[in-house]
Amino acid sequence: MASETNTILTMTRKGGPRGPPEGRKEEEPWQDPGSDESLQRTLDLVLEVELSDESDNEPDFIYGDIVHDTEADEPIALAVVNVPGLIALEWEFEDGETLADRNPKCPDDDDVIVVTPIGVLEDYMPDWDTREAAIPLEQLVEDEVPFAPFPSLRLVRVEDSHLRD
């Protein structure tokens, strides 16, 4: 058993038809390329990647986020009121066009985000920023609250929702 722990690991180098490069042996002992410092650096990088992966799992838009339309000449504050779980190709307007048809710069499978101007939302529901759930689309239609669907790629979040930690 003691002889197993003293064994030196070797790696065979294949030199092709001419043999190994000059000055090299067919087999050379393996040497630890790093130290505790490089191990710590690797662990730090792994932790950094794990932390960035966790933030990647956070949705881009949730109820209560304040957003701007990136294509507007003078953007206004819009509040996300619903994220229906549809893609742009699935959102159809009364004239038969889809959200994807009206936004050719965005991919057909981009998520639909429903927004309303923040002033309209505050008039309609003064306590909207304490609410914990999205406003159902049927309720917005029934209450005649103006809203608009957007592909997510046209929106930029300028203020986080009260629901984000």
Rank of each mutant, 00 (worst) to 15 (best):
A2K: 10
S3D: 07
N6I: 12
T7F: 13
T7S: 05
T10Y: 13
T12D: 04
G15S: 05
R18I: 01
P29E: 11
W30T: 06
E37K: 13
S38P: 01
L39C: 11
Q40R: 09
D44M: 05
L47D: 02
E48L: 13
E50Y: 02
E50N: 09
D53I: 06
E54Q: 13
S55V: 11
N57S: 11
E58L: 12
P59T: 00
D60T: 12
F61A: 08
I62D: 09
I62E: 10
I66M: 08
D69P: 04
E71L: 09
E71P: 00
E74Y: 00
I76G: 09
V81R: 04
N82T: 12
N82Q: 13
V83C: 12
V83N: 09
E90H: 09
E90A: 13
W91S: 03
F93N: 03
E97V: 02
E97S: 14
E97N: 12
L99Y: 07
C106M: 12
P107I: 15
D108Q: 07
D109T: 12
D109A: 08
I113Y: 01
G119R: 06
L121V: 15
Y124E: 03
W128H: 12
W128S: 08
E132G: 13
L140T: 14
L140M: 15
L140S: 05
V145P: 11
F150P: 00
S152E: 14
R157Q: 11
R157A: 06
E159R: 10
S161F: 04
D165Y: 02
